[in-house]
């Protein structure tokens, strides 16, 4: 097993962890946002979906939750390990550093990642643990947990909606670099596909975060009520 330790402790091994968990977390985001777009199909569709998630067979919900904790934990641990190494690698800063090619998104990955992490905690506290800005249990006409009304009530508060929208934009910047960078990390750099890796895949991140940001925007503008 020594080879696994050697691999994970190496700079490249930690980078593979970043890339692979990054793919997993992005796929989770796609599913999570797609599921919540059911808000556009009304109260019944949303609440039925929420109830269905909670009653997934074979303990799938908990398997998914544990998987998410492992993926987020690995992604954050590897990021911290790599970032600390990067900071240690240049103890004396330049007086006049100017960048020629590095994009804004690529240079701010640790910061955007940290902001997304703080948002994640808030988001969990808000809608999962329901300890922040929670306005009481709601039940719909069929006796189901009324997730639809909870979300609408949450996003009718401009400050909370604003926070979600800003967080989604930060996540968009994070994914803009991450979704393209992970291919290079996994060794995929080929003139045939580089247009996809560098131009198309960053857009896939924006599609998802803008879809997510559309929910608070729709509630605020009264399209969802």
């Amino acid at each position: 097993m020594a080879w696994i330790v050697r691999l994970l402790k190496s700079s490249l091994g930690a980078k593979y962890v970043m890339a692979i968990t990054g793919i997993g977390l992005y796929l989770f985001l796609v599913g999570h946002v797609a599921g919540n777009l059911l808000l556009y199909f009304g109260q019944d569709a949303m609440n039925a979906y929420a109830l269905g998630l909670r009653h997934l067979p074979y303990g799938l919900l908990w398997i998914a939750r544990i998987g998410l904790v492992i993926f987020f934990g690995s992604h954050i641990t590897a990021a911290t390990y790599l970032t600390l190494g990067n900071q240690a690698a240049r103890p004396v800063a330049y007086q006049s550093k100017r960048f020629m090619k590095a994009s804004f998104a690529s240079r701010t990955m640790p910061m955007s990642g940290f902001i997304v992490f703080l948002f994640l905690l808030y988001h969990l506290a808000h809608y999962t643990w329901r300890v922040v800005a929670f306005t009481g249990e709601r039940v719909d006409s069929l006796g189901r947990d009324d997730v639809y009304s909870m979300v609408v009530a949450g996003f009718q508060q401009p400050l909370i909606s604003g926070l979600y929208i800003v967080a989604m934009l930060v996540l968009g910047v994070h994914l803009h670099h991450g979704l393209s960078s992970l291919f290079q990390t996994l060794g995929l750099n080929n003139a045939r596909y580089n247009t996809f890796f560098r131009r198309v895949f960053p857009l896939l991140g924006w599609v998802v975060v803008l879809a997510a940001a559309s929910i608070p925007l729709s509630v605020m503008s009264g399209c969802i009520r």
Binding site: S10, S11, N86, A89, R90, M100, K101, S103, S106
Partner: peptide, 22 residues
């Protein structure tokens, strides 16, 4: 070579491609 690179205390690539430009 990667092991030696890590041991020398270089940082880790974040795919910014600044090196390619420089």
């Amino acid at each position: 070579m990667v092991e030696q690179m890590d041991a020398e205390g270089f940082g880790n690539c974040t795919n910014q491609f600044e090196c390619e430009a420089a």
